[in-house]
Write a protein that binds this DNA or RNA. Structure first.
Lengths: 112, 112
DNA sequence: CGGTATCCTCAGTGATACTG
DNA sequence: CAGTATCACTGAGGATACCG
């Protein structure tokens, strides 16, 4: 809470353009690559792969490959991934409450 | 909490490379431009200006100019800014608890 | 002191094509 | 299906210089 370096590191994870949107889609259980691709609107195949690799590397998701044809790969939040998701919940609640105010503030600011 | 679009918008604010670090430095009261420049390590003058403008536009900080020479400009969190800061607190706590695990997970992943 | 104005670079991202 | 490989581009951000 006191160390700005930690703040910087969390930003490296949650500040990522796609990471939290992917984590979000995994909150109700494992999902396959293509499911994620469909549900995270606007993400490219490449960025989904990159994002999932990073999350896997950080111990936030697991990657499970079923050696069948065609391939079947599913991703799931680790216990740590679930705690991360919970830690971001207040922020989502905040956004629901305040985003309209922000839009209003912006409009007011731009009218000058 | 359900709308992915909102998640995207919050990311636009908290996901910014510098915004949360600046907000953090304002948590104990108003700070002057140069104070912020010194305390947010590594930020350029340009990015501090840009970041503060955005935060002001979004209604998260106020900008107060004292028309003296030399100029004196101080920034302060708005009430909404303070609620934002509170909403990010769980994330900071999470980081203190889990960042070591993440480092370990990365090291393990890279050793392959 | 607290900015703006410019220029420039490069990391992040998308598009596309190919593959086990 | 779930990637990898390449290329090309854009814009976030640094460096520098100047200003009220």
């Amino acid at each position: 809470m006191e160390d700005p370096c930690k703040a910087r590191q969390v930003l490296g994870i949650v500040g990522d353009k796609w990471a939290m949107l992917v984590v979000r889609m995994l909150k109700d259980g494992p999902r396959r690559f293509t499911e994620l691709k469909r549900s995270v609107e606007g993400i490219s195949q490449r960025m989904l792969t990159v994002t999932l690799r990073d999350l896997e590397r950080d111990g936030i998701v697991t990657r499970t490959v079923l050696a069948v044809m065609p391939p079947h790969v599913s991703y799931e939040l680790t216990p740590m991934g679930r705690t991360l998701r919970e830690a971001t919940a207040p922020l989502l609640e905040w956004s629901i409450e305040h985003l309209p105010h922000i839009d209003a503030a912006r409009a007011a600011y731009d009218n000058r």
